[in-house]
């Protein structure tokens, strides 16, 4: 492959991804691509499946159908190039660890889990701490941080991973205006370096301002693309105008009556499944 072709490979391709909890479908055949080097916002109302989408992309739960490609490869091949930031509330911040210890986790790998971190690893941790302005708090215990500082720690851990694709779940929740700006600055910097950043975001007001690529989600994909094309009255109304009754009814039917979420033996893999009927 030529260099030019490599740049054309989307950073993230989600192909017909469907997911459910206890047979209750929460994502319906999500299908989109994100090019490299954009700052993307995943936007949708509460419970619209944003977190579920990220968890599926990171292989944290088993999809019912579809697949995900990252830089054209399976996740396992490019894990080192991807960084995932879970929702801040998903961890217990009373955990006895220092800021530095948490950020160091960004350098953990299967290979070095039983050894000490190398010097380069420690340097990368310091640089990441510096970037989010937490270096002076490095030895503070995480139980003593404010909400905004906790977000900065998670951001630093992600930066320490030194990835090419960043997936972050609500990094702006619970931060003040100054921190929000600081975080945004770091993210823009990443984008300027040609990295791809995907952010789950709540606030419609700021979404247009912050991102240049937007994915509108409400259990189904409403729209995905450059923000100018996506941010239309009609799309927004559709995304925030409630669930489709037919989808909800069908979901309940599947959950209640032990139907398979996807037909057995009809698991779509790459290249198959576009047949006629």
């Amino acid at each position: 492959m030529k260099n030019k072709d490599i740049n054309k490979v989307p950073s993230l391709e989600v192909h017909n991804l469907a997911a459910s909890y206890n047979r209750m479908p929460v994502l319906w055949d999500i299908d989109f691509q994100i090019p490299q080097g954009v700052l993307t916002g995943i936007v949708g109302p509460n419970g619209s499946g944003k977190t579920t989408l990220l968890r599926n992309i990171m292989g944290l739960m088993k999809a019912d159908s579809g697949y995900v490609k990252i830089f054209g490869e399976d996740l396992n091949k490019v894990r080192e190039r991807v960084s995932y930031v879970p929702q801040r509330e998903s961890v217990d911040w009373t955990f006895p660890a220092s800021v530095r210890e948490v950020v160091e986790m960004g350098r953990y790998r299967n290979a070095n889990l039983m050894r000490r971190l190398s010097k380069t690893d420690k340097e990368k941790v310091n640089i990441a701490l510096e970037k989010v302005g937490m270096l002076e708090y490095a030895n503070r215990q995480i139980s003593q941080l404010s909400g905004g500082q906790q977000q900065r720690v998670f951001l630093a851990r992600s930066l320490a991973q030194d990835a090419d694709l960043y997936l972050m779940d609500e990094p702006f929740v619970g931060v003040d205006a100054a921190t929000e700006e600081a975080i945004l600055e770091v993210l823009s910097e990443l984008r300027n370096e040609g990295k791809t950043v995907v952010i789950v975001h709540h606030d419609l007001q700021t979404a247009y301002q912050y991102f240049n690529w937007i994915i509108l989600l409400n259990t189904r994909l409403v729209a995905a693309g450059p923000k100018e094309e996506v941010f239309l009255q009609e799309n927004l109304r559709e995304a925030y105008g409630g669930r489709l009754t037919i989808l909800s009814k069908l979901s309940n039917l599947i959950a209640k009556s032990e139907f398979p979420v996807r037909e057995k033996g009809f698991k779509e893999t790459e290249g198959s499944g576009d047949g006629q009927s």
Binding site: G59, R79, S90, M105, Y108, N110, L113
Partner: peptide, 14 residues
């Protein structure tokens, strides 16, 4: 790592 943030651990391929 596992006690603090198991999801993140899994995302690292652990």
């Amino acid at each position: 790592l596992m006690s603090f943030n198991p999801d993140f651990a899994q995302s690292l391929g652990i």
